[in-house]
Design a protein around this nucleic acid. Structure first.
Lengths: 145, 145
DNA sequence: CAAATAACTTTCAAATTGCAAGTAATATTT
DNA sequence: AAATATTACTTGCAATTTGAAAGTTATTTG
C-alpha cells in the first residue's frame, strides 16, 4: 500500500519514481543476469539487502509491474519471481549502465567479458538477450493474479 | 564529507552508489536539457527539491566528478555548475531512460518531440548532443580547484 | 514428529528527507 | 551610502525511510 507519488510529468522523474533507489535495479539485475528468482536468492547477493527492504522492494516492483509473483514449480513454500516485458525492456538501459561503469570503474573479469560482447555488437547482444528473457514469459501460472 | 560506501564490485551497484537516488539524475537532466547551471535554477524545477537536499546532491555529484563548480561570469554571488566528461557520458543511459519511459508513460509534447528525434537516429542524436555538450567544457576557470 | 527452510513481518535505532527559517556574501535600488 | 533584494547555502527539527536483528507462519525434510 505504498503511495505512488509522481513528482512531475518528466520521463526521467517518472522513471526514477519507480526504480530510482539503490536496490530495485539490483533485483532486476539478479533476475536478468544471475537467473535468480526467489526471495532467498536475492538475499544472498553481494550487496546484502535487508529482509524488510527486500520485501518492500519486491512489493513495489510488483505494483509497478516490473515483476510478477508465480507459484514455484518445486515447492509451495517458495515463490517464483519473474521479469515482465516492462522490466525486460530495461535491458538497453542496464546495458548503458554497464558501458558507463566500464569507462569509470574497474569491472570484475566475468562481467568484463559480457561487456566485451556488448561492445562487439550492442544491438545483437540486446536482441539476443531479450529473446532469451522473453522465453521465460507465459510459461508459468500467476499467483494471486 | 559524505562516506563513499561501495556495496560491491558490480558495475550496476557502483553506478547506483553514485546516482541511484531520486534527485541526482534530475540535476544532470536540468544541466543537459534545460541549460540550467545555478543553484537557483535547480531549485525552480518542477519536482521541487528541498534546499538542503539540493546542496547535498550538488556536493555528492561534485565529489564523484559528475559536475564542476566554476566562477559565474555574470556575478560573484553566483556559482556556475557545469557537466564533466563523466556526466556527459551518461547521455546514452539517459536516452534509454527516455525510450523506456516513452513506452510506458504519457510523455509531455515537447519531450515527445525530442524522443522522436532520438527514434529517428539514436546514434546521431547522441553524438550531436554530446558534441554540443562538450563545447561547454574547458571554457571557464574552476573554483577551488 | 522435530528440525530446517522459505518468505516474510515486526521492532526499534539510526540515517535520510523535507519543510521552514536563518545566515553570509554579493548586487541592486533608492 | 543605506536599505533592499538576490544567491547560495546552513541549521533545526519533525517525519519518513533504512537497516540490523529477531520473530512468525507455512511448508518441507529427515
Amino acid at each position: 500500500m505504498e503511495k505512488v507519488k509522481k513528482r512531475s510529468e518528466c520521463p526521467i522523474s517518472c522513471s526514477l519514481d519507480i526504480f530510482g533507489d539503490r536496490w530495485s535495479l539490483l533485483i532486476i539485475r539478479d533476475m536478468m543476469f544471475a537467473n535468480k528468482s526467489t526471495y532467498g536468492d536475492f538475499l544472498k547477493s553481494a550487496e546484502g539487502i535487508a529482509t524488510n527492504i527486500l520485501a518492500s522492494r519486491l512489493q513495489s516492483l510488483e505494483e509497478n509491474k516490473l515483476i510478477e509473483k508465480l507459484e514455484h514449480p518445486d515447492s509451495k513454500a517458495k515463490v517464483l519471481y519473474r521479469l515482465t516485458q516492462k522490466s525486460i525492456d530495461l535491458l538497453p538501459l542496464i546495458v548503458e549502465v554497464h558501458l558507463w561503469a566500464d569507462k569509470y570503474f574497474d569491472i570484475p573479469a566475468d562481467i568484463k567479458a559480457m561487456i566485451k560482447e556488448v561492445k562487439k555488437d550492442k544491438n545483437k547482444f540486446i536482441s539476443s538477450m531479450t529473446k532469451q528473457l522473453k522465453n521465460q514469459l507465459d510459461t508459468e501460472k500467476k499467483v494471486n493474479g
